[in-house]
Write a protein that binds this DNA or RNA. Structure first.
Lengths: 180, 180
DNA sequence: TGCTCCATGTAATTAGTTACATGATTTA
DNA sequence: TAAATCATGTAACTAATTACATGGAGCA
């Protein structure tokens, strides 16, 4: 079983969802296409780590809702305690930084401004998500209650916001160096 | 030609280097193994974007030093002006966050402390690199001179330092929530 | 009329990892 | 004496991307 399989299990553990839901939600932390996810879900089901229920919809295609089993929870606990691979990054923007000195200043500014724009857009989406989460938050669970399935997603979003802000500030610093 | 090929070209543009050097230097921004890099370098050479020189060494294996050609620089300028793919991330640590609520608090603390340790070690390496770069910096190039081949690498390291610090602060905040 | 969203699946291709292969020198 | 560093390459395998395939609803 590969890391993506554990990741899918992990997302399902928080709330039952369809393959389509997973493709949307996992992309922030693990780039994966639906063509990879659907076969893995079938495997997880064959292994008895998840079970699914056909949900018939009118006006929309039918879907399968996957739920974690007790065997799946046990598998997750083992994975959690095991070693964690360092994050894999492939960043074209970073690679472009090495040829800065070959291109004119305007092209560099365009690149950084475009990056800053992306980061701003992402920050907006993240702050929107934060607000949505506050509404979902039940009053019986305090902010620091780890046993709530929303605790993980919440601190992950906070992490993304911090990192995106730091990166945006860096963009502004660089643009200033280039006389903006 | 794929993104990694452009990345290799980009690194070579700053200073001529061997395949081995590239495997060491590119890993911070683009995960790649030597088994991927050596064949791509041969391709770049066949296409006339780089040229190489055999360097015989005593006490060490011989090596090939690759240098960018004018055609290579032209190729880089085109790549630079074109669209930039968003960074690809595959982060096992982030995936583990979704199953926090299933495991005991001690296991969570272990995971976050381990992450914090990794970040601290990386920050040390980055700050060491910053010092090394200051020594390489020639006095005729001011800090904000983009036409110096070291400008790109320098601002990239500054970016990494900012992001790693933000992530480390996040770890401390989470550990505090968990009563550290 | 064409596009996006919803929803699932498979096939073909490309990219990436792990393993195999060699070998001298230095460090723990 | 075992492991790490330097240095390059290929082969086998696994993972990931792109393309193929279907189809109704809602929007511009």
């Amino acid at each position: 079983m590969n890391t993506l399989s554990y990741g899918l299990l992990s997302l399902i553990s928080g709330s039952p969802c369809s393959g389509y839901d997973l493709t949307q939600r996992i992309q922030f932390f693990w780039n994966a296409n639906h063509s990879q996810i659907y076969p893995l879900l079938s495997q997880l089901e064959e292994m008895g780590l998840v079970s699914f229920e056909h949900v018939l919809q009118k006006d929309k295609p039918d879907k399968k809702i996957y739920t974690i089993t007790e065997a799946g929870r046990e598998e997750l606990r083992n994975w959690f305690a095991g070693p964690t691979d360092p994050p894999v990054v492939r960043d074209e923007f970073a690679l472009k930084m090495f040829s800065l000195w070959l291109v004119d200043q305007e092209a560099v500014k365009r690149l950084i401004r475009e990056k800053a724009g992306m980061l701003e857009a992402k920050l907006c989406r993240l702050e929107k998500r934060t607000k949505e989460m506050r509404l979902l938050q039940k009053p019986e669970h305090p902010d620091f209650d780890m046993s709530c399935p929303l605790f993980g997603p919440r601190i992950l979003i906070e992490k993304s916001i911090s990192l995106n802000r730091a990166e945006l500030e860096w963009c502004h610093r660089v643009l200033q160096m280039l006389g903006e």
